[in-house]
Design a protein around this nucleic acid. Sequence first.
DNA 1: ATGCTGTCTGAGAGCGCTCTCTGCCGTTCG
DNA 2: CGAACGGCAGAGAGCGCTCTCAGACAGCAT
Lengths: 336, 336
Amino acid sequence: MTARPTLEKVAERAGVSRATVSRVVNGSAHVTPEIRAAVLRAVEELGYVPNLAARSLATRRADSVALVFSEPPTRVFSDDPMFPSLIRGVSRETEAADKHLVLMLAGSPRGQERVERYATAGHLDGVIVASMHGADPLPAVLARRGVPVVCSGRSLTAGARGAPPCVDVENVRGAERAVEHLVTAGRRRIATIAGPQDMVAGIDRLTGYRNVLRGSDRRSIVAVGDFTRESGIAAMRQLLRDDPGLDAVFAASDMMALGALQVLRQAGRRVPHDVAVVGFDDVPAASYAEPPLTTVRQPLHRMGRELARLVLTLASGQDPGAPVILPTELVVRDSA
Amino acid sequence: MTARPTLEKVAERAGVSRATVSRVVNGSAHVTPEIRAAVLRAVEELGYVPNLAARSLATRRADSVALVFSEPPTRVFSDDPMFPSLIRGVSRETEAADKHLVLMLAGSPRGQERVERYATAGHLDGVIVASMHGADPLPAVLARRGVPVVCSGRSLTAGARGAPPCVDVENVRGAERAVEHLVTAGRRRIATIAGPQDMVAGIDRLTGYRNVLRGSDRRSIVAVGDFTRESGIAAMRQLLRDDPGLDAVFAASDMMALGALQVLRQAGRRVPHDVAVVGFDDVPAASYAEPPLTTVRQPLHRMGRELARLVLTLASGQDPGAPVILPTELVVRDSA
DNA sequence: ATGCTGTCTGAGAGCGCTCTCTGCCGTTCG
DNA sequence: CGAACGGCAGAGAGCGCTCTCAGACAGCAT
């Protein structure tokens, strides 16, 4: 049962040498058609499947990449509805390249160390770090160890020489579009629920908001959240206290926007009549919120794909090229 | 940089043999304290990390398990908010056991084959198949190949000898609780949006509904969906047509319940005043629906953990024991 | 002293694969 | 017609680790 046939067996059966079988199996060059056919037949008959560990040992490649979530796992995997799409995108590319995808949750220091060890152990051709936190030390640590690393979201320390390549979205532009939409609709007192200011996405989206307001004659009204729904609730309450007359809110994440929606409803404000709300991310729940949420879409799936592509090129020793910046898109629904 | 130190180097440095270093590294038995210390020092100084491929080749273990989603990936990973929790649960156990988690999406035939090959290639100690579809051939195929497999959700063909062990939840009981809650509240015309009848969860939850109605003097009103929100919308419309006088709905999934909520709102029915709604799953969005959804909670995280535990015991050659059936719990919020 | 047990270490044979190197052949060129 | 060439198969040396086996040596009883 567990006695899988080896190259040796196949070679014997096909009446050739191990090396030849290896050539055929790896689809490589110059093998006479008849011999190739004989080998393939033997492979078929024996149900031969190469032992990956042995191959990996001999080639010093691993044929797999890791996707690590470098956040406290609770947060990432329950509250944040964006990761599934990202995973799917990554998975799609890795499968196309016939690589395997190892998932690692590295929220704790122990987790970090695990990732480090695993990568160092040569079981990984590359690592994708999906941590939105700019100050995360993991990418740098891995890079220093010689492991190909790419990041989702521009690192806070980007620009520094040797910073890992990354895939990011047009956060500033997206936020600008959202706020412009509000301005165009004639909203006068446009507040924002900003994201955490230690994350690039948080910073950039606030910048976008400020850019537009500066260009119009409106003043900014800011509360800061951490992208979660709970923080959105708290921030919205704060905003209502600070400026009861506000007529629009741009939330830097959909989850915060959803929280805001709830608070507004409880406060008796009609959305969008009294207060317009725009979110950011376009998570699935945005489309079936009440009212459906106008938001800025991030191409998560595509990000995942690019991330995978990037790490794969990097792993193959090629130049990853310039950072990939993906476009965002305003999706207008009913909330604004 | 890439020249990682080998056991050999460490042995040399510590002035012992390879075997001894191996013993120390693997924490195994009888090694004199001084020698152990010397080895550890050498390991430290050289920054030694064992090469997993080599170990795997020598031990014929892989130290990793796969979590495979055997559904068309689009559906699983965008619409279904339950998988993240499951993943987290699995991940937690595998990390605790110092195993690695490989994620595979096997929606397509090609994907299935990949999983099969990979498992057969000896790169996996075990496989967790998270397919809710009862008729999925993958578990059986793998089992026949001698790969330890566990399933989430009782297989439709369960009971058959040699069926892989599984982790399931009390679907029938959960559904009963939900409907009992509705009956107790004095609802007279209780409809259900059932799940797909080729999945155990779909079947069992409908059974639970029927059990309770049979016990009271109410007749059943059934529409069938496929657990998605869209299908919930369609089913709710159907139900409203079939019996405009209904005063309660039990949906076999939260996503369908969310869809139903939307339809009811559009139809001008107040929830829970005119129509009470109960869902199933307790996805994150349930708690912030409008109104917050009363639902039956599945212990997803725990399911993940149990799944991992099960596959790990199975992989270690031990008896997995009886199928694990996890309890469900009625979470009463505002919608019923 | 001798033999015995028992603990600890080293030697060495793999695990299954890849890949370089060498040798063989048939072809083409000087 | 012999030499040089080029395509193709085989031999064999690892890749880095584990693990069995046997040897060395200490401690104890005889």
